[in-house]
């Protein structure tokens, strides 16, 4: 039985949780440990923390957060954002994170994926892919990878990049549509299904969730193994339990 995971995503800046709309325009939504415990109690299957801290103290504050969460919350959690080296990954895993997610650094130096995977196991190596439809082409697979929080074009084809990170040892792909992110219009289904059809490893779909039906579409139409959302959970529009009921009502197995 394949059981779909529901994963709230918490953007973290200097130890506080925030959520950007299209990665700008940030609102404060609370303390990471309290929110993590709340989501655990609500039935969240995992948590993802995306660290957007720019300051030079970022490593210390993020490690401290990982330690604090790991002391009190007993579900798996991933930390992503700003992980450039194997040593960055090691520090966060030692602090208590179960997985690390790499994005820009993996594009710059793909072998980082293999390094993390062979040192700590594929199960803790998530590769985050931010992608957009190419402006000029309507061809199948015409999605381009972006880095630096969606600001920098790479010229990489997203489907080919997904296959490459799988070959390098990624355990999961966290896929975000930069076109859909922040719109609340639903997942980018063509992008999601292009990636889920191309790889054998689990794909976490992200970007665009505005309603519970969007979660259902991500699984049934996009083929996602897990669904990640932020604002619909953070601002009390829906609970994790409601999300799971919506999935269950369409015969998608979830942990109740």
């Amino acid at each position: 039985m394949r059981v779909v995971r529901v994963i709230p995503c918490l953007d973290v800046d200097a130890g506080r949780v925030v959520k950007g709309v299209n990665f700008v325009d940030i609102r404060d939504a609370g303390d990471p440990v309290e929110l993590a415990a709340l989501y655990d109690a609500q039935g969240a299957d995992e948590l993802v923390f995306l660290d957007i801290t720019a300051s030079s103290e970022r490593r210390d504050t993020t490690e401290a957060m990982a330690r604090a969460v790991a002391e009190q919350v007993f579900i798996p959690f991933t930390i992503g954002g700003g992980i450039r080296t194997l040593e960055d990954a090691r520090a966060l895993l030692r602090a208590g994170a179960d997985k690390v997610s790499v994005n820009t650094a993996a594009v710059k130096r793909p072998v980082l994926v293999r390094e993390i995977s062979s040192e700590f196991g594929a199960q803790c190596c998530v590769v985050a892919i931010d992608a957009r439809h190419r402006a000029v082409s309507k061809d199948e697979g015409s999605f381009e990878v972006y880095t630096h929080g969606g600001r920098t074009r790479t010229g990489l084809n997203a489907v080919q990049w997904a296959c490459e990170v799988q070959r390098l040892g990624a355990g999961e792909i966290l896929l975000t549509s930069m076109d859909a992110d922040g719109t609340k219009d639903g997942f980018d289904i063509p992008l999601t299904s292009a990636i889920t059809n191309a790889v054998d490893i689990p794909v976490i779909a992200s970007g665009g969730v505005g309603t519970l039906q969007h979660l259902v579409e991500g699984v049934l139409l996009g083929g996602a193994d897990a669904i990640l959302a932020a604002s619909i959970f953070h601002f009390g529009e829906h609970t994790i339990a409601e999300a799971k009921q919506a999935l269950a009502s369409q015969d998608i197995p979830t942990r109740p």
């Binding site: 039985m1 394949r2 059981v3 995971r5 299957d45 355990g171 689990p202 193994d225 897990a226 942990r255």
Partner: peptide
């Protein structure tokens, strides 16, 4: 025939 690894909650 399902994906490997199994990364999920199961009953």
């Amino acid at each position: 025939s399902l994906k490997l690894p199994q990364i999920q909650w199961n009953k």
